[in-house]
């Protein structure tokens, strides 16, 4: 921990501690709706960090990350549904299954030199055929979905992730913090240096003795595992899973927007991105509803426009700019 803490300038430490303290006591003044928005922000921070490790650090573009979240959610939900195995235990096989799929994608891609856009297509393909498979499997509920029953007598079994918004608020906050700490630690590790070297110039990385295949595989495996954890949490939060939603490419795109907007290959970019995009999306729903122009698609148009503006103004992401603005780095 000390190694993560030491390089942060004093002003950064103050901001970080103040922010964390504010988030810890915030539920006291937030209503249910706002709490639900924060849960989403923390969820997108978690999966954003996961995707950021693969793309922002190791330079491997995945457009199918919904696969890992969906698999994680389904595995844990099915174990609960059929065997009453709680998610604290169920998260382990959930991670294992997601990592197995990640290993398959990584092996195919990296072993056979499928790079860039073609690798991204491979990740989409895996997510898509998994969606089709889940659509047609009876024991997962098929296309009709899988529902976790609300049982009033178990409503306070926090150890089974049965609980109200507050439980999920603190759980998702803890997971987001954990994912950020893990990213910070990895970024300063030998592996982190190997990843950015591969991202910058794979051939030169190899010439410096880096086992490129191994480093990229580890990136995919860690990323898949982290995303699966997010999927497990979300499944127990919403209590329902549909293949058409869980594995849809729009889910994958949602996950990657945060880090892209916040700043790829930075530790705080995914957090900043999640804090911008989630309220933006929710705010647009509220505004369009109020103005009575809640026609399907209007929200997406505004959302897209805002994204284009942000990305054209801050192509390196908002965080590197924000960092200079609040004086954490010399201009």
């Amino acid at each position: 921990m000390k190694r993560l803490w030491d390089p942060i300038p004093l002003r950064g430490r103050v901001v970080l501690v103040a922010l964390l303290a504010a988030l810890l006591i915030a539920p006291a003044v937030l209503d249910r709706y706002l709490i639900s928005i924060f849960v989403l922000i923390f969820y997108f921070t978690l999966v954003g960090q996961a995707w950021n490790l693969m793309m922002g650090y190791a330079g491997q573009l995945s457009l199918g990350h919904a696969l890992y979240a969906g698999l994680g959610g389904y595995v844990a939900a099915l174990l609960w549904f059929y065997f009453g195995i709680g998610p604290w235990l169920g998260v382990i096989p959930a991670i294992a299954v997601a990592m197995a799929f990640g290993a398959a994608i990584g092996w195919l891609g990296f072993r056979f030199g499928i790079e860039g856009v073609y690798f991204a297509l491979l990740t989409i393909a895996f997510a898509e055929f998994t969606r089709i498979a889940f659509d047609n499997m009876a024991f997962t509920g098929g296309a009709g979905g899988l529902f976790l029953l609300y049982e009033p007598k178990r409503a306070h079994e926090w150890w089974n992730l049965r609980g109200g918004p507050l439980l999920f608020y603190y759980l998702s906050l803890a997971l987001a913090c954990g994912a950020t700490a893990l990213t910070a630690w990895l970024a300063r590790s030998r592996l982190g240096y190997q990843w950015v070297a591969i991202r910058e110039d794979q051939r030169a990385a190899m010439a410096l003795g880096i086992d490129v295949f191994r480093a990229k595989m580890i990136a995919v495996l860690i990323s898949a595992a982290m995303t699966a954890v997010g999927g497990v949490m979300l499944a127990f939060y919403y209590n329902s899973l549909f293949p058409a939603q869980a594995f849809d490419i729009s889910r994958s795109i949602e996950m990657i927007l945060g880090p892209v907007v916040g700043g790829l290959g930075t530790v705080f970019g995914p957090i900043v991105g999640a804090f911008i995009l989630t309220p933006l999306g929710e705010g647009l729903i509220a505004v369009t509803d109020k103005l009575g122009i809640g026609v399907p698609g209007v929200k997406a148009v505004f959302y897209g426009l805002t994204l284009m503006i942000i990305i054209s103004l801050r192509p390196d992401g908002v965080w590197p700019w924000l960092k200079r603005l609040i004086g954490l780095e010399a201009a």
Binding site: Y193, V196, E200, A205, L208, I210
Partner: peptide, 25 residues
């Protein structure tokens, strides 16, 4: 260890980080 005739530094990394990657071998 080898160098390339057409140099291949890691462009977005600092000079120091470039060399750290080598030293981490």
């Amino acid at each position: 260890a080898r160098t390339y005739q057409i140099v291949r530094p890691f462009p977005a990394l600092s000079v120091e980080d470039n060399v750290i990657v080598g030293a981490l071998m």
